[in-house]
Write a protein that binds this DNA or RNA. Structure first.
Length: 280
DNA sequence: CATTACCTGCAA
DNA sequence: TTGCAGGTAATG
C-alpha cells in the first residue's frame, strides 16, 4: 500500500478496531523476515499486551501498547494489516502473521510480495525512524514558507526530490504525479527553480490531493486493503497516474508516460511545461 | 545518479 | 517469456 493516504486510512481503521484490545499469542509466522527484531522479541513485547493506540508517521503505521511498548508496521509494496471478525475464513497462503485478539477476532498481516516489515520501536529506534523522515505534509508545520525553505538551492529534479522521504514524508509515485499535475509542474523541473507562485501551487496541490485521497479511503489498483480488508476509492479520481494516453482532464492533450528516476511517470505535456534547461 | 536486490503475480 | 508494479536499502 503504500503511500500516506493508504497508510493513514489503514492506521485509522486499526485504531478503531484495536484500541483497548488485548493481543493473544502469535499464532502464525510463515515469513519470519517480517519481524525485523525476531520472533522472540516480538512475542516478549506484544503478547498479552493491550493496544492503546495506532497512528502513522510517514509511511509507517505506528502502534503502542498500554504498557508503553511501541512498534511500527511498513506495508512497502503489497502489505495489508486487516482485522478479521470472529469466525472469518482461515488465513490464506499470503498471510504471514496472525495475532489473535482476546475477543475472538484476529489481526492478519498479508503481504504477497513480502517486502513489508514490522519493527520494534524503543526510544532509540523511534528516534532514528522519526529523524529519518521529513515534514508531515498534513501537519501545521508544513507551510508554504517551510516548503520554500526546503526547496531552496536544491538541484535535483522535482519528482525524485519529492519522493525522498527526508524532505516531505509520505509521498510516493502516485501522489507525486498527481500533485505535480495539479500544480502544473513538470517532473523534471529543478527543485530549486520554482517561483514563489509555483511553490505555492505545489504546496496546495500536495495538501489537497492527500486530503481528498484520504477522504476516498486511499487508492487501490491491486493489493491495497484498509484495516477492514476493503479497497480504496481514490483510483477513480486519478488525473495523471496510470492515465497514459488518456486525455488530460484540463486540456484534453494525451497524458504522457515516461520514466523519471527509474519510476514510471505520468504528466500532461501541455499543462506541465517542460523545463527550459537540461531537459530529459 | 544508475543499477540491483528484495518477492510475487499478472498483463502484454 | 518479458517487463512492470504503490517502497526502500544497498551498491557501483
Amino acid at each position: 500500500m503504500p503511500e500516506l493516504p493508504e497508510v493513514e486510512s489503514a492506521a485509522r481503521d486499526l485504531h478503531a478496531q484495536l484500541a483497548g484490545q488485548r493481543l493473544g499469542a502469535l499464532a502464525r509466522l510463515s515469513w519470519p523476515k517480517v519481524l525485523e527484531d525476531g520472533e522472540a522479541a516480538f512475542r516478549e513485547a506484544l503478547e498479552g499486551q493491550v493496544v492503546a493506540r495506532v497512528g502513522r508517521r510517514a509511511k509507517w503505521i505506528v502502534a503502542e501498547t498500554a504498557s508503553g511498548r511501541r512498534w511500527g508496521m511498513h506495508l512497502r509494496m503489497s502489505g495489508a494489516a486487516i482485522v478479521r471478525p470472529a469466525g472469518a475464513p482461515a488465513p490464506d497462503a499470503h498471510t504471514h502473521l496472525v495475532w489473535p485478539l482476546e475477543d475472538g477476532r484476529r489481526l492478519d498481516w498479508r503481504d504477497v510480495r513480502k517486502f513489508g516489515r514490522w519493527r520494534l520501536l524503543g526510544p532509540e529506534a523511534w528516534a532514528a525512524l522519526d529523524g529519518a523522515h521529513g515534514l508531515e505534509p498534513l501537519s501545521e508545520a508544513f507551510t508554504e514558507q517551510a516548503l520554500v525553505a526546503l526547496l531552496g538551492g536544491q538541484g535535483r529534479a522535482l519528482k525524485p526530490w519529492l519522493l525522498d522521504q527526508r524532505h516531505v514524508a509520505g509521498l510516493g509515485n502516485i501522489y507525486v504525479d498527481e500533485a505535480l499535475w495539479f500544480a502544473r509542474l513538470h517532473p523534471l523541473r529543478s527543485a530549486g527553480s520554482l517561483s514563489p507562485e509555483e511553490v505555492g501551487a505545489l504546496h496546495a496541490a500536495i495538501k489537497g490531493v492527500l486530503r481528498r485521497a484520504i477522504e476516498h479511503g486511499g487508492s487501490t489498483f491491486r493489493d491495497y486493503r484498509n484495516g477492514y480488508g476493503e479497497i480504496g476509492g481514490h483510483q477513480d479520481h486519478f488525473r495523471a497516474y496510470g492515465q497514459g494516453g488518456k486525455p488530460c482532464a484540463r486540456c484534453q492533450a494525451p497524458i504522457m508516460r515516461s520514466v523519471v528516476g527509474q519510476r514510471g511517470t505520468h504528466h500532461c505535456p501541455e499543462c506541465q511545461a517542460a523545463p527550459r534547461l537540461r531537459p530529459r
